[in-house]
Structures are given as C-alpha cells and as structure tokens.
Amino acid sequence: MTALDTAGPAVTAGPAPTRSTKRSARRRARTWGEIALLAGPAVLVYLFFVLLPVLLAAYYSFFNWNGLGPLDQFIGFDNYTRLLADPVFHRSVFNNFFIVVMSLLIQGPLAILIALLMNRRLRFRGLLRALIFVPYVLSEVTAGLAWQILLQSVPPTRWGPVDTLLRTLGIEDPPSWLADPDVVMWTMFGILTWKYLGLAIILMLAGLASVPDELHEAAALDGAGWWQTQWHITVPLLGPTIRIWAFLSIIGALQLFDMIWIVTGGGPLNASSTMAVYMVGNGLNVSQIGFGSAVAVVLFLISLIVALVYQRFALRRDLAGALTGGVR
C-alpha cells in the first residue's frame, strides 16, 4: 500500500511528549473514544455479519444438523471425509477450476487483443464501450433466464431460438447445449465469457490509457511493427491491469453460483455443478446444514490458498501485502 507507506500526519494515541501526563492521558482517552466512535459501527457490523458466520460455518461443519432440532450430534470430521469422497464434489471442484483456467487462457488474451485494437481514436468509441459493457451490468438472474430461454431445445420439433437460428444457417444438428454432460460446461463458459468479457476489455482499455504514447512512437522510430510494439512494450506495461483482472476472475470463478443455479441448476447429471451449487443443493435444500457448512469451509480454504499463491507469485507488487500483511 504505497499510499499508506508515505506516512500521513502523525497524531498518535501512544504516549506523547507533553508536559502534563494527566492531560495526555485525557487526550489519549479522547482519541481512543473517537476511534471507537468512528470505526466501531463498521467493525461491529463486519465482525457480526462477515466473520462470525464464517466461524459458525466452521463450527456447524463438525455436526450432523438438519437446522431444525438442537445442535447436539457432534460427528468430528465425518462431513469432511464424506465430502472429499463424493465424486460429485470432485466434479464440482473440477468445474470451478475449468472456469478459472479457461477464463485465464481464453477470456484474458481475447480481451487484451480486442482492447489493443480498440485503443485508438475511434468515432463512437464511448458508445462502443458502453455497448460492450452492457452484459456486465445485468444481474446474473436476468441474463441467466434469457440464456435459458435462448438455449432450451427439445428436438426434433421444439427447437429453441439459438438452435432455430443455427438451423437456418445450415447447421442442422446443433449440440445439446444444456442437456449433454460433455457440452454443458462449455456452454456455461460461453455464457460467462459473454457476461464478463466486456468488463475485461474495459479494464484493459483503462490500463492502456496509462501507457504513454511516446513509448510507441519511440518503438516505431526504431522500426518496430505495430504487432511487435504491442507485444514487447504495451502488453508488459499492462501487467498490473492483467493481474488485477486475473485476480477478480479467479475469485469469481471459484465462487461461481448464480449463473449456474439459474441456467442449469447444476445439471444435467451434476455435470455443471460447482462448489457453491453443490453446497446449496446438498446442504441447504436437503436440510443438511452441517454438511453444507463443511462444503463452505472447503470452498473457503480453496479460495484462500489460491488467493495466497496468486498473491505470492503474481500480485505481490500490486497489492503489497494488502491481504496478509496489512498496513506497514
């Protein structure tokens, strides 16, 4: 946190070199009072509604509890062993990482490429940016319902809108987008790319805006082609933006719930289940709160590990330890 490293005004609550210790004690008490008054509400709300539930989840995860009766059936790590042995959960974890990897491999480069192309003076640039940004501002529910209607098909007579369009274009036998277990995750990835590519492009464009033109000019004078210039100069300078986007993308993909829940509910045959979908479907919806909490804890641990590893290797410079080190 560069901003914090350059120290601000030092009003200290610690012992200050004043003449009267009584007065300094009073001032110190007053400073603490102010701190409590100002930060207190946020801290309380945060502790109570963010941290406490996480701790409670960890606690519930050691019980067999249907959410109705008393919490008295302690079962140790049984929920965890059951979870880790369940092939459907393995599939869910795999699906989360499928989206993580595919996003990084496909969405990222695609967004960078489009942003590089668009990073010039264009007429209607503002309008184009706004249009590209539209899918991102929609709620996942409205977008998901729309895609569900677009893709749902019951061949041979009840083709959905997308399939009808493909058939007029000559593709007689389109894939079963939502019904084929081997296809459904690609479909979901397609929908997610539609939803989030715009944000990635706009983020990259914002990053590109801070790359000075002079660098390009210098490179061009050296005889470098446009493509070489972009690859050797612009893209490396885009590093921080790419890392930020990747962080948002990874965390989002690990927590993926809304879109899947709306479009497929995790089906067919659990083929599109993710950790969060698994948690709701096998925890809350069948009143196994203890088991669902164990899923939540595992989901958290996986997110934490991924975030820490990512921070260690990629985000270090940008975050300067915001996640672990705090203010130094």
Partner: peptide
C-alpha cells in the same frame, strides 16, 4: 464471499 457464510 457470501457463498461461504450464507448458511450460518
């Protein structure tokens, strides 16, 4: 994220 603490 919310997903984790939603049940409790």
């Amino acid at each position: 994220p919310l997903t984790i603490s939603i049940l409790p």
